[in-house]
Amino acid sequence: MLKAENIYKKFGKLEVLKGINLEVKEGEVISIIGSSGSGKSTFLRCLNHLEKIDNGTIAIEGEAFVDNGVYLHEKRVKEICKRTGMVFQSFNLFPHLSALKNITQPQTTVAKIKYEDALQTARNLLIQVGLSDKEDAYPSQLSGGQKQRVAIARALAMKPDIMLFDEPTSALDPELTGEVLKVIKDLASQKMTMLVVTHEMNFAKEVSDRVLFMDEGVILEEGTPGEIFGNAKYERTKSFINMIE
């Protein structure tokens, strides 16, 4: 489904990713944990070309859009990256469009889907995330949790093969994280392939098939939630988990 090999990335002189390898299988849910500055968000953003890598290979569905640090033509890169959907920490809904339009416009603009079909998809997704009564609300009229649920619906409407979540609950009040996590859990039960950067350890434990612990630009340790949370090999992993829990 998604394969990243030997990913290197620098911001100026600062090396943020130092040789990352990851293979994601269809239907797999993977949580990426680690302290801030460990490179987990940057890694996620490289996977859909929001950041450029310096070296390495990234392939989606067997098609590499960057091979040993050489990118394909910009247009082709865009085509391949459309197979991913992304949910941001700060939601990034379009403030000038209603909740419904936020979900229909990308479909009609980018995927060239007929408006009636886009509308149908949007309405179904709003039902799925529990916001069918908020069709006409503008983002400024929604709570953080509601905004994030619309953002998830917007990404899903583009029918991605894999969903990337970049700390989807970090900007939310504690009482609002639950409603967003529930939507993500529902997706997991529908076998959506997902990569989730998160600080929610309980969520990582319950939902993921695999947990990656990132530290200083490398994947220090990976395993099942049981292995990582119960029986971590590295002292660094243990101390991080103890500190958070």
Partner: peptide, 13 residues
């Protein structure tokens, strides 16, 4: 907000 450009890009605009 820079996030507007980013989410548009992520959606394929």
């Amino acid at each position: 907000d820079k996030g507007q450009f980013e989410s548009a890009k992520a959606l394929g605009y």
